[in-house]
Write a protein that binds this DNA or RNA. Structure first.
Length: 375
DNA sequence: AATCCGGGGGT
DNA sequence: ACCCCAGGATT
């Protein structure tokens, strides 16, 4: 454990490095708690380069907590569409509404109030309060944890709760009390740019002299990787209607998921977003799909529909590997389905959709281009 | 404390 | 094609 003058040197070198070499990121040009908050939510499980365009576009539509709170949820999700983990967007807006209702539109400065907001846990609360308000809370995210595991040559799975708590104590101890926001960002920046998972750039590291992992020659093998969950393969079939004008049908986000989510639970796999009529299949997909459609549209004359295979789409939802068999159904007139919406197959971005649905539309469009319109 | 939850991107 | 990455909520 670093103490005394060594701790002082460590802090000075890391902070100095950060102030000189930090990346110029959009959310580092503001102290607006709303913008810091938005960036932290977008950066959860998401790389900086992926988040930046979403961040800019989101702020153009929702420049402050009030506009976000007052927006239709559909519009919030639409601007999040493609970024993944859509629960983040739903929670973000819920929290915005709570901030307006209970905190006069100001992001809470107290840790417990921040933690009470949906989508904000230990990491995010510490990040926002330290960066926006200079509060003395040390962050521990994946980057910081990797840095600390290497610095202290910590073995074992760092995500085990006991080890994680030890790391949090270490982070608390190291925190530079004069500049908690910069300090926290410095720890994470080091993990993101030099102390990276593979082939860390130790010769460039401002605190390499303090690193036990490096001294022992095991830095790169730390932290020990977790065992990953086995992948479950799921096969889905989806119906892509197309009328003469290139319009198609999407079903609304499945609201309630009554039964316990199993591996082939469609609402989960379409991320509770707008989606093509989809079901899980095991045997002959087109037959199953026809039966499904008949059930979905009682009374509709569907006997003559031709289900043209329009390609396989692969998609991953955490530990599930989805193979989606898409079927193009060209019709003169789109059938009526309760709740369904009609959108151009060539541009379904007007509704919130997941990337799975985007890929399906793309595959079906290609098939439609090569298949002559029937009827 | 343990378990569950949900996707995208890099190589 | 294959591999990698984590933070919050729930129980």
């Amino acid at each position: 454990m670093l103490n005394g003058s060594e701790l002082g040197t460590f802090r000075k070198q890391l902070l100095g490095w950060f102030r000189q070499f930090q990346r110029d990121l959009p959310w580092r040009r503001t102290k607006d708690p709303y913008r810091i908050w938005l960036s932290e939510i977008m950066l959860q499980q998401t790389r900086v380069s992926a988040a930046i365009p979403y961040y800019q576009r989101f702020l153009r539509s929702f420049p402050d907590v009030h506009t976000l709170a007052a927006a239709p949820q559909e519009e919030v999700l639409r601007l999040w569409s493609g970024l993944g983990y859509y629960g983040r967007a739903r929670n973000l807006q819920k929290a915005a509404q709570e901030i307006v209702a209970k905190h006069g539109g100001e992001f809470p400065t107290c840790l417990n109030d921040a933690l009470a907001l949906p989508g904000i846990g230990n990491y995010t609360a510490a990040a926002i309060l330290s960066i926006a308000f200079g509060a003395k809370h040390a962050v521990l995210d994946g980057n910081a944890a990797r840095v600390l595991a290497r610095l202290g040559a910590i073995r074992g799975d760092i995500r085990e709760s006991q080890r994680w708590q030890e790391l949090q104590k270490t982070a608390d101890h190291l925190l530079q009390p004069k500049s908690p926001g910069d300090w926290n960002q410095a720890m994470m920046e080091l993990g993101a740019t030099l102390c990276i998972p593979k082939s860390p750039l130790c010769p460039l590291c401002p605190v390499a002299q303090f690193c036990q992992g490096r001294r022992l020659g095991i830095a790169e093998s730390l932290p020990e990787k977790r065992k990953k969950r086995a992948t479950v393969e799921v096969t889905l079939a989806a119906a892509v209607f197309a009328d003469g004008k290139g319009q198609t049908l999407l079903l609304p986000p499945p609201k309630k998921t009554k039964e316990r989510a199993s591996a082939d639970h469609v609402p989960t796999l379409v991320s509770k977003m707008w989606h093509f009529p989809t079901l899980s299949v095991s045997g002959k997909p087109s037959g199953k799909l026809s039966a499904f459609l008949r059930k979905l549209m009682p009374g509709v004359q569907s006997r003559n529909w031709q289900l043209v295979p329009a390609g396989k789409v692969r998609h991953a939802v955490t530990y599930r590997a989805i193979i989606l068999l898409s079927f193009l159904i060209q019709v003169k007139k789109l059938p009526r389905i309760t709740g369904a919406k009609q959108v151009p197959l060539g541009d379904i971005s007007g509704l919130p959709i997941s990337n799975l649905t985007r890929k399906v539309a793309h595959a079906a469009l290609a098939a439609a281009a090569s298949a002559p319109a029937k009827q």
